[in-house]
């Protein structure tokens, strides 16, 4: 090599810079790994001492983060990055190969199809097997719906009970009161759940034909929203409206729970009530229509 030309000097400078830079990155990576190691040890200690979620999270963050930061830095700053170039392989096979493939396929198919009766038999056997074995995966799962969606546990004369099973008296609610009730014998039922509201002390007629349904100001509606089935448990006392917490359908209590806002398509079914001789609230009959969201078989 010739003596110091400016070029050589420059390249020596560069090399020195690289060396310094490399050493720096080595240190960064090393510190990262060390931190990760310490955090992992700390994690072990915390765990051994009974664990603490926040400390575990923080130490995991350092342990994993140190590892990740170190490895990435190493892979980014201490190994060559190229960029390298590589040719893409042709994805497509040559024409001849594709033709040959089709030929092979056809040859095999011809050999099979020669026995066409057997092919049909095979098809029948496999098809039947496929259909029949599908049944356990569908039909065994549950009963046919039948009348399931049309009935609730409310019957003629069902006493209204609270979730704990105690019967509801006509004196239990004040004006502006609200209570979730169930048919006697089925407290807590998902389908029969009914919301009992008392907007007044006077009998309430919500719609023509429902003259006797609201004795002493008691109104009972199915608590299952006609939109998506959420419990309509949100009673706004001043405006006498029921709001569904899921999708904000609004029902007007005094006019038969007609939907006045939001996505619900139908009013909440109303339960006809009466007060028996001992002062308990009872249902005159079950709901006169299916409760809850719509389904295909349901007419109107």
């Amino acid at each position: 090599m010739s003596s110091s030309t400016p070029e050589l000097k420059q390249s020596q400078d560069k090399e020195r810079l690289i060396k310094v830079s490399e050493r720096r990155f080595e240190r960064v990576v090393g510190v990262s790994f060390l931190l990760s190691f310490l955090a992992t040890v700390g994690l072990g200690v915390v765990y051994w001492q009974g664990g603490q979620t926040q400390v575990e999270g923080a130490l995991l963050f350092i342990a994993l983060g140190g590892l990740g930061f170190g490895i990435v830095s190493w892979g980014k700053y201490l190994v060559p990055q190229g960029p390298y170039v590589q040719e893409r392989e042709e994805l497509q096979s040559p024409e001849s190969e594709r033709e040959a493939f089709v030929e092979s396929l056809e040859r095999g198919a011809n050999q099979i199809q020669r026995r066409s009766f057997l092919v049909k038999m095979l098809g029948a056997a496999v098809g039947a097997f496929g259909i029949i074995t599908l049944f356990p995966f569908i039909r065994s799962l549950g009963p046919q719906p039948k009348k399931m969606l049309y009935v609730t546990n409310w019957k003629k004369g069902s006493a209204l009970v609270k979730a704990d099973g105690t019967k509801v008296r006509a004196t239990d609610l004040e004006v502006g009161g609200v209570l979730t009730v169930f048919p006697d014998g089925h407290p807590g039922g998902a389908i029969s759940q009914t919301i009992l509201i008392r907007p007044s002390f006077q009998d309430i007629v919500t719609k023509p034909g429902r003259e006797t349904w609201g004795p002493q100001g008691y109104l009972a509606y199915s608590k299952v929203c006609t939109h998506a089935g959420c419990p309509v448990g949100l009673y706004q006392e001043l405006t006498q409206q029921l709001l569904c917490p899921c999708h904000q359908s609004l029902f007007d209590v005094m006019t038969g729970a007609n939907p006045v806002f939001g996505p619900a398509p139908r009013p909440l079914p109303q339960l006809p009530l009466y007060i028996d001789s001992q002062g308990y609230l009872r249902a005159q009959a079950g709901y006169d229509e299916p409760i809850g969201p719509g389904f295909w078989e349901r007419g109107a």
């Binding site: 004196t171 609610l173 004040e174 502006g176 009161g177 609200v178 006392e237 001043l238 405006t239």
Partner: peptide
Amino acid sequence: GPGNMPRFGTGN
């Protein structure tokens, strides 16, 4: 039961 809040009496 202030405002829109329902009232919860002793029977409830």
